[in-house]
């Protein structure tokens, strides 16, 4: 039933630091299918962040092949990468990364501005997304008027608003207390059940346990890839 959304074959990411080179990823193979719920784990320096940047099309591999919905990311122009990020990927960050001066609604609308949608359509879609994350009563608030959990919900709404193929969350509960963190994870579980593909990058086992699949990285290679 599930066709691969992301296919990674022999991907390497090498940073040239002058005299030495750092092999952040040293030959990774990975397949992510539709409605996957995957956690990427690993100690610091394992290549987690690099993996996240590559999956999110913020960066391109030095070697190997990265196919996003069958298209080779390495051959894309910067604008094409921006469009992939805009339409196919929804980012959720550890520190929320909301615009401090903008209202909830405007924050959620932002990806649609870069998608070139009409303001009325933007508003409508942003409201829908906010309903999904249970914040329909907070549309005109600014981030500093919201709790941490609420801010992360706004960020999730922003990630969802353009109906992306995958949700990419980088330590989404890292800045939250454990109770609020659980609430956010419950939201992810719910979104997974609604059919979304979710990739979590985390170093916490509790968080990873929510996923259905756990990929462990170590020294730039996949150490293990298990179903949970």
């Amino acid at each position: 039933m599930n066709s691969p959304v992301i296919e990674i074959v022999g991907v390497k990411k090498i940073y040239d630091l002058g005299e030495t080179e750092v092999r952040a990823l040293n030959g990774v193979d990975l397949q992510i299918v539709e409605n996957d719920y995957m956690a990427i784990m690993g100690p610091s320096g394992s290549g987690k962040s690099t993996m996240m940047n590559l999956l999110g099309c913020l960066d391109t591999p030095s070697e190997g092949q990265y196919l996003f919905a069958g298209e080779d990311v390495a051959e894309m122009t910067d604008d094409e990468l921006a469009d992939i990020r805009n339409r196919r990927i929804g980012f959720v960050f550890q520190s929320f990364n909301l615009l401090a001066k903008a209202t909830t609604l405007r924050n959620v609308e932002l990806p649609l501005v870069y998608a070139g949608l009409h303001p009325d359509t933007r508003r409508e879609r942003a409201k829908e997304a906010l309903v999904k994350v249970g914040l329909s009563d907070r549309m005109t608030h600014r981030p500093n008027e919201l709790s941490g959990g609420q801010r992360q919900r706004v960020a999730i709404a922003r990630a969802l608003v353009n109906k992306p193929s995958i949700l990419l969350a980088d330590e989404p509960t890292g800045n939250l207390d454990s109770k609020t963190g659980e609430e956010i994870m419950a939201l992810f579980d719910q979104l997974h059940q609604l059919g979304n593909t979710i990739i979590l990058v985390t170093h916490e086992d509790d968080i990873a346990m929510h996923a259905k699949r756990c990929v462990r990285l170590r020294d730039g290679i996949v150490e293990s890839d298990k179903k949970i």
Binding site: L58, D79, A82, L99, L110, P111
Partner: peptide, 16 residues
């Protein structure tokens, strides 16, 4: 800078 990064991540092109 972080705001620029965020905008780029959610799909802003260089020209934006």
């Amino acid at each position: 800078t972080k705001e620029i990064g965020t905008r780029r991540a959610i799909g802003a092109r260089k020209r934006a």
